[in-house]
Simulated assay, not measured.
Amino acid sequence: MSVLRSSGSSVSCVQDQGSRPDGVIERTERLVQWGGREHTPFVNYVYDIALIDLTSEDDTVDWEWIGARRDKGVSHAQALDLAPRAWREWVKHGSSALPGLRRRVARAKVAKVRDQRPKPGSGEAADLETVYKYFDGRKHDFEALAAAVAARVLRGAGHGYVEGWLTRRSGDGGADFVGRLDLGGGSGLAGTSLVVLGQAKCVKPDTLITAEQIARVVARLRRGWIGVYVTTGAYSESAQTEMVEDQYPIILLNGTSLVGELRSMARDDHGGDLAACIEHVLTGREVAITNRRPEEILLQ
């Protein structure tokens, strides 16, 4: 029987799961489990493993190091030269250094800027540039597009989503569109609804959205509300880290994600014609523009 448990930057795994090459065993526990139809008891072991930070190695492990550790012809010092920086620090300073060498959980959920942008010269890059140029200076048009993409993403997650309205140009206070996410699929006590506040930002594809810009949306959120940020740019790694560490209830859609959703919409309903898809979003959908309070979406 295999069990894998994790908490923070530590992982617990049973004996038959094996240990990780980027972790240090901190504690071992012998436990008795029951399995099978007869609930026969058997003994197993749980190891608590502190995962080490691999930022200096771009989150990869050099398997030459693993091979060197198994090779009897390679000395410990030679093998250590191939080890990750954090591992060498642990060997040098001992377990007391582990708190500063642990992998930060937030980093695993942070997308590098280069991974948020289409490959230069690719069709996706051309599409993103087309979208940016089409909507540059057309604030409300881009908000309508962002609202449609956000609706598709939220519905694609298996939830009911109701589109609301776009906010007026003056005094939007960090929200460009409003929607409602229905959870539970029932009425009364069997379901609940959340207010969705959306921010749309049409910027040059090489632009980075900062933590301050995301925080402006988060500041508007009340308990039970979530945010959606849609942009033609990308999100800085520091902004993402802050979002994860502070547990902001917000969904981030970058330029690559935006174009990907638009391409899917075009393929499903417009024979792959991206321009026709965009025109349909802008002319074929009725979207109100108002200064209504976001919570009024719960009454619709």
Rank of each mutant, 00 (worst) to 15 (best):
Q17I: 00
T28E: 12
V43N: 07
N44R: 07
Y45N: 10
D53S: 08
S56R: 15
D58N: 15
T60C: 05
V61H: 06
S75Q: 02
H76V: 00
A79Q: 03
R85W: 01
V91Q: 14
L98Q: 07
R103F: 04
R103E: 10
R107L: 13
A111Q: 08
G123R: 09
E129R: 15
G137S: 14
H140R: 11
A147V: 05
A147L: 14
A151P: 03
L154C: 06
G160R: 06
W165F: 13
D172N: 13
V178M: 04
G179T: 03
L181G: 03
L189D: 03
L189P: 00
A190Q: 11
G191P: 09
S193H: 09
S193I: 01
V196F: 05
Q199R: 12
I209K: 10
I209V: 15
Q213T: 06
A215T: 06
A219D: 10
R220I: 03
G227W: 00
G227H: 00
T231P: 00
S236N: 10
E237T: 14
V244A: 11
E245W: 01
Y248T: 06
Y248S: 13
L253M: 08
N254A: 09
T256D: 14
S257N: 13
V259W: 02
R267N: 08
L274E: 09
A276V: 04
I278S: 11
V281R: 01
T290A: 14
E295V: 09
E296L: 14
I297K: 09
